[in-house]
Design a protein around this nucleic acid. Sequence first.
DNA 1: CAGCACTTGAT
DNA 2: TCAAGTGCT
Length: 466
Amino acid sequence: MSDAPLVLWFRRDLRLGDHPMLARAVASGRPLVPLFILDPETEALGAAAKWRLGLSLADFARRLEGLGSRLILRRGPALAVLEQVLAETGAMGVHWSRLYDAGSIARDGAVKAALRARGLEAVSHEGFLLHEPWQVATGQGGFYRVYTPYWNAVKGRDVAAPEPAPKRLSGPAVWPQSDVLADWQMGAAMRRGAGVCLPFQVVGEDAAQARLAAFLETRVQDYKAARDFPARDATSRLSENLTYGEIGPRSIWHGGWRAMQDGAAGAEHFLKELVWREFAWHLMYHTPHMAEANWREDWQGFPWREDNADAEAWRRGMTGEPFVDAAMREMYVTGTMHNRARMIVASYLTKHLMTDWRVGLRWFADCLTDWDAAANAMGWQWVAGCGPDAAPYFRVFNPAGQAEKFDADGAYRKRFLDPRSPEARRYFEAVPLSWQLAPDQPAPRPLIALDRGRERALAAYAARKS
DNA sequence: CAGCACTTGAT
DNA sequence: TCAAGTGCT
């Protein structure tokens, strides 16, 4: 039955081009049934990411319809749904693009085993990363724990050229029934209201490609220096699109590579940032405990504070530290936060407020529309001191010093704190009543003096060693 | 085993 | 100038 339909199980690869699984499926000549499953793992996404995924699904469904196809939406445990759809369509196989977190690996492995045991085809494909985590190894054959050697190992490697998007997709004689996306209520958990972040989202494959092209056209030149200044529009902002697979890493790699050969000054640095994502997934695959436990296991027992009132002030952007509060409000109102600001708020929570990095990670998971489990686990642990990197414990960011350095004119702080700015106004419209925040409220007194917080953190780190 | 290098800092 | 351990070749 070589003309039996094939089910394409889409997850974090909501695009048509640069898509190995889709390209191979089209080449097989079989009728294709694109499927998205709202399974328990996906239901568990943070509020903002789940809502943003809904936008991506709507866009992807439209793109598929433009090719004469559809996106079938079903809800339930993945294996049960796949078996139903296989039975309904007479399909003989399922294909998907691999993911690399422990939960996905367990789920997909079980799906593969169960389907193959019934004589069905179950095939996973690359495409989420530039390099499979098991294909990058040190001279000793192990995995990398340090970024720079990892970069040196992959920077010269060939990356397959992105496949062009198919022009048409053939479908089954009879389509299986599909849920209606709106019924899934993907934005239901957004306490701030689903529409708040909408103006800040750039959704879908066309938009992501345009974003990449625009970045490579101009901003990449000055990227290396300008990316550190949070008030400037100097970064690509592609993390949002990468998260849902609206663009693939190979498209970005080849774009960046071309820019580098054309002499764009910041292009290599841009490629390095893309490879940081890659490195995070490399670590996530080889050390899956990174998602939840201290990556350095000898940090067990470190006296982090559990969730507490200071952490709640941090979440609300009410620490009294202007740069920190601006950044936390940026995330709440836009669904994203500038990279440098992420480091500073993470340092402030874990060092000055001595609070467990997982408290911060959970809030990021709830608020970020570019939520990436590996990049966040690695980043939080790096800042906290328990993650990969040799000696970060004495690296305590001073938010006031950082503000002076990277937001000297105060433009970033004003944008999210000054009630006259549109972004700040949006913030005050969005916060839940229970937060009791008003535009005319005076800035809170700092939770802790910066030098005292620094000393307290360093003392705790010193005590850990003895 | 030696030697080298280490994303983003602070005072 | 500090601080200093460790991962990698």
